[in-house]
């Protein structure tokens, strides 16, 4: 246990003694602030919209139609809930969050996690591969510590780093939002059982970030595996980022085929379950979790055996 913590401290030190890490974090924060600024700026460009009561009742009509049309039970319930919430707003005079306000902005800001994923992928692909590039792998592995342990320490450090970046993204989004956007604009409502209750923006936003973090863990582990296998920094970063951007698109390309149900990127976006129609028919959150766990186990096993069994001849 003590040994593991020493190893993790080593890896953490090697990440944070490099200037490039700070540059990545600075870029990440800059991107989040830019997002906040652009949100407030584009909101100001929009002309005065209609009063919220009108908007909500329009929305309600749409939901009612959709509820009537939908054949699938889950979908019907979802739209019925939305109708109920809209009605509740009108009856009790509870405005929804404004498009221009802090609440909606903070929920939308979860898309910034993409930057955090990108930068974590860079670190994850390099954490093993760089040791080979630098030649330090020789001095690292001739120690009274099993190679497997060194690898696991690196993996945990990568996860810790991805969590750190996710937190930085979240905190920067809050700070950016407070700087650029107006606050106190309406209330989020949700159904709990049969009751309509107020939902805190903090809990809702954390939930969205949390779901995005699942994607982050998978991408990080994938990059980690590629880095361990290829022992080349550039290849690992390139391949991981390429898949990050094309992987999701391929889901639509593959949707005709049966294997799409077992394709990694069908499952990485958990926010698809917040609405009734997931990307592919016939998948459920539990199924997705199972598939992702299987992928994760394969990634880690491949990394482990590649790292512990292969000769080091750099």
């Amino acid at each position: 246990m003590f040994e593991m913590s020493r190893l993790i401290r080593n890896e953490w030190m090697k990440i944070f003694k490099r200037n490039s890490t700070y540059i990545l974090i600075a870029i990440l924060m800059g991107a989040v602030f830019l997002f906040a600024f652009v949100s407030s700026w584009s909101n100001n460009q929009q002309s005065q919209s209609m009063p919220w009561e009108e908007q909500v009742s329009q929305q309600m009509n749409v939901y009612e139609q959709q509820a009537a049309q939908s054949e699938n039970m889950e979908e019907k319930i979802y739209y019925q809930d939305q109708v109920a919430i809209a009605q509740h707003r009108l009856e009790e005079d509870i405005p929804p969050p404004k498009h221009t306000g802090f609440t909606q902005y903070l929920l939308d800001s979860k898309s910034n996690i993409t930057f955090a994923v990108l930068f974590t992928v860079i670190i994850a692909s390099g954490i093993v591969a760089s040791e080979f590039t630098w030649g330090t792998i020789k001095l690292l592995t001739i120690r009274p510590v099993k190679r497997g342990k060194i690898l696991w320490a690196k993996y945990f450090t990568t996860l810790l780093f991805s969590l750190t970046l996710a937190l930085i993204t979240y905190l920067a989004a809050i700070i950016g939002g407070m700087m650029f956007l107006e606050r106190g604009d309406g209330v989020l409502l949700t159904m709990v059982g049969d009751n309509i209750v107020e939902q805190s923006v903090w809990i809702e936003s954390l939930r969205l970030y949390g779901l995005a973090f699942v994607n982050m863990i998978i991408m990080t582990s994938f990059a980690f595996m590629i880095g361990t296998l290829s022992r080349s920094n550039a290849l690992a970063i390139g391949l991981s980022i390429f898949l990050m951007f094309t992987g999701q698109q391929l889901v639509f390309l593959f949707q005709e085929y049966a294997f799409v149900k077992f394709y990694l990127f069908t499952h990485t976006d958990f926010s698809q379950y917040l609405q009734p129609n997931p990307m592919i028919e016939g998948i459920s959150p539990l199924f997705s979790v199972t598939v992702l766990m299987l992928y994760l186990i394969v990634f880690l096993l491949v990394s482990h055996f590649s790292f512990t069994k292969r000769d080091i001849a750099t």
Partner: peptide, 15 residues
């Protein structure tokens, strides 16, 4: 019980 330099003593240059 082993101490070694294998080929060049490559260190972490940024530390």
């Amino acid at each position: 019980q082993v101490g070694a330099i294998v080929e060049n003593p490559e260190m972490y240059k940024f530390m």
